[in-house]
């Protein structure tokens, strides 16, 4: 019986590949968009304008305070009521990008705040403009703090992309759900689904750990 199941599973491998492709594509697109948006928001969050900072902070709190599943439902079912018709893929991208941007915003803001004020003063004193101070002095130093949790955040994002299967996108998790209807061996099917995610996520987890160690060491070295 297990033999038959394996054969049947082997037959579903094109579907599995498509699912994996969807997971990777969803994650990659929202990862890039979320990073860009997150850095922008993080810079604005620490930019000194109280109102802008408070608005961003409130939005980030809303997103961090609600389950991602609920956010997807809100975007997928409610935006159409405002006349914005969305397919599941676009809704998934919007939800994931927004989620990533909010978490990355806080990571970037924490990194920027960790840069000693003396560094900003030195940059000010030599006449660097706002953008030059950010680009040349603050961000390069903030990256040491930002990078390890940023990579960790990417892992969370890839895992969170599994939740978009709830609005019918055929990602890796959805494929498992479809296959298990035909091949009634949940342990085997979802073990294989897990392997798929593991292959994508584990290298990133290792990278995050290495960065954490390296950055920790570099940080110690720079201490005066």
């Amino acid at each position: 019986m297990i033999w038959q199941q394996l054969q049947s599973l082997a037959g579903s491998y094109p579907l599995a590949l498509r699912g994996l492709g969807m997971t990777v594509m969803l994650s990659a697109i929202s990862l890039v968009l979320g990073t860009l948006l997150g850095f922008g928001l993080g810079i604005l969050r620490t930019g000194g304008n109280r109102l802008i900072s408070a608005v961003i902070g409130a939005w980030v709190d809303l997103i961090r305070g609600t389950p991602f599943l609920v956010q997807i439902f809100l975007i997928f079912f409610i935006l159409p009521e405002f006349g914005i018709e969305l397919d599941a893929f676009t809704a998934g991208i919007i939800a994931l990008t927004n989620l990533a941007a909010c978490f990355i915003c806080e990571i970037v803001a924490a990194g920027i705040r960790s840069v000693p004020t003396g560094q900003v003063e030195a940059a000010l004193a030599s006449g660097l403009s706002r953008w030059q101070r950010m680009r040349q002095v603050v961000l390069p130093q903030a990256m040491r703090i930002v990078l390890p949790p940023l990579v960790g955040q990417y892992v969370l994002l890839i895992k969170d992309s599994s939740v978009v299967s709830a609005i019918g996108l055929t990602d890796l998790t959805r494929v498992g759900w479809l296959v298990v209807q035909r091949v009634p061996n949940g342990l085997l099917v979802f073990f294989l689904v897990g392997v798929g995610y593991f292959i994508v996520c584990y290298p990133l987890i290792m990278l995050a750990r290495r960065l954490e160690r390296r950055m920790g060491a570099a940080h110690g070295e720079v201490q005066l």
Binding site: V155, I158, K159, D160, S161, S162, V163, S165, L172, T173, G176, W177, V180, P184, N185, G186, L187, V189, F190, F191, V193, G194, Y197, F198, C201, Y202, I205
Partner: peptide, 22 residues
């Protein structure tokens, strides 16, 4: 590592569809 590298939803389905098998 196995838990951290896979989504909760897949773990949930693993148990939901898998435990009856056992």
């Amino acid at each position: 590592d196995a838990v951290r590298a896979t989504p909760l939803l897949a773990q949930l389905y693993f148990l939901y569809f898998g435990l009856p098998r056992l």
